[in-house]
Simulated assay, not measured.
Amino acid sequence: MAVRFLWKAAAFVEKYRTGLLAVSCAGLFGANLSYHVFPKQTFKLYYQSWTEGQPAELPEKLHSLFHDVLRDVGVKSVNCYQPFATFGFFPVSTGIPWLPAGSLVGIPPNFNSTAEDKQGIVNHVVVINGRKVDWESEEGLALKNALILSPEAQKFSIAREVVYLQCNSPLVRAAVPPACLAGTCLSAVAVKQLLGLYSGPIVFRGIYNITVAAIGLVGYFLAYDAVNHALDYRSDRKAATISKEYARGGVEFYDKILSCNRTLRTLLGKQGEKMYAPSGNLFPRYWFRLKHTPYTSRRDLIVNILKVPQA
């Protein structure tokens, strides 16, 4: 019974493969883009910071900082970008500016802190490994210092999120899975016809299909990571070339991230040693993938920009 069902399913896929491929690619593209199309109903609900059961309001100081960054980046449609208060330590973003819902940029509470006034950090409870962080301990002081950014570093971190959205990076990332699926299927059919496997034993076709699927999956992982790295580098480069102040802020920003990750490595113990390298970079979860762009290389990119005279 199961063999007959599989045989019929294979025949159905073979008959309608073009339509099924088109529907699958469209579905993948839509699924990867869904939270960018409806950012307030998806992304914001997850990343919104809450205070006493209510959504936290972004301080006026950070609203002003955000609009200064939009002006420096050269954004014409200011209303397409909306800031909100997010939890965590560093900015996040989502959305497509030219769609009706626009884009959202989340700004964390520690951006309201300065070297003189650390209240934006110490008045928030941070729990790591099931324990509250003691801000007066050695690790707490190191984490506190890593979370205090200069205005230039804050501007750079927000600018790179704005530039990331401005360059339609979410669209590019969402296009990678359907492009890899289509490329794998079309090339598999072409090679199968070239080798004459359609007239050969079904066992050979089955082995061939499994092999192609495995190669396609690995190719997708490599392509997705490569595109992700390229988009990150492009956003960093564009934000750093706004001015020397932004470039210097970018170097500080990534130095602070590395310092923060090294402190978290200590606070988390064995779990932290698995997540963070001694340098502060994130350890890849899988040996064949480098999902996150190394922070050291992103910092070095900006350092090299600063070395160029016309920068």
Rank of each mutant, 00 (worst) to 15 (best):
F5A: 12
P59V: 13
L290K: 14
Y233G: 08
Y16A: 08
L231E: 09
H67C: 05
H292L: 13
W135K: 00
A142G: 02
R237K: 14
I242F: 05
E136N: 10
E152G: 10
S243N: 08
V176T: 05
N129E: 02
L20Q: 04
Q48D: 10
F111S: 03
Q48G: 06
N145C: 02
L195Y: 13
V212C: 07
K155V: 06
I148V: 07
V125Y: 05
P178I: 03
E252K: 05
N79C: 11
I207G: 09
V75S: 03
H67E: 12
P108E: 00
L21D: 06
Q119N: 07
V189R: 10
T211P: 01
I148G: 00
T114D: 02
L217Q: 14
S49C: 10
G27Q: 07
P201W: 14
W287Y: 15
P59K: 11
F89A: 10
Y276T: 09
C185G: 02
D117A: 02
Y16W: 14
W50C: 10
I202N: 13
S93E: 04
L104W: 08
G27W: 11
P309Y: 05
L28A: 11
L194S: 14
V303T: 12
V189N: 10
T18W: 15
H67K: 11
S34Q: 13
V163L: 12
V92H: 02
L58T: 06
W7Q: 09
L65M: 12
H36A: 06
F5I: 13
E116A: 11
T114E: 03
A9M: 11
Y220W: 13
G250A: 13
L194H: 15
R289V: 15
V162E: 01
K15I: 06
L194E: 13
V218D: 04
I210Q: 05
E52A: 14
F43P: 01
D134V: 09
K40W: 05
K40N: 06
S49H: 11
Y233Q: 11
R173T: 10
G19D: 03
S93F: 04
R262P: 01
P100N: 10
K256H: 02
P201T: 15
R265W: 02
G27N: 07
V162L: 01
G272W: 00
P55G: 12
Y16C: 07
P278I: 04
N304H: 13
S235Y: 01
A311D: 08
Y286V: 11
F43D: 04
K144F: 04
I121G: 00
L147E: 00
V126P: 00
A311R: 07
M1C: 09
L165M: 12
E52V: 13
F253Q: 03
A240F: 06
L268G: 00
C185Q: 10
L143H: 01
A223Q: 06
V125P: 02
F221W: 15
V212G: 02
V126F: 02
D232T: 09
K192T: 14
L217Y: 15
L231H: 04
T42P: 03
K144D: 02
A31C: 13
V127N: 02
H63D: 14
L6Y: 08
F111Q: 04
N168R: 07
G249W: 03
Y198G: 13
T263P: 01
Y164D: 09
A2F: 14
T241A: 08
L21I: 12
D225M: 07
G272L: 00
M275C: 03
V191K: 10
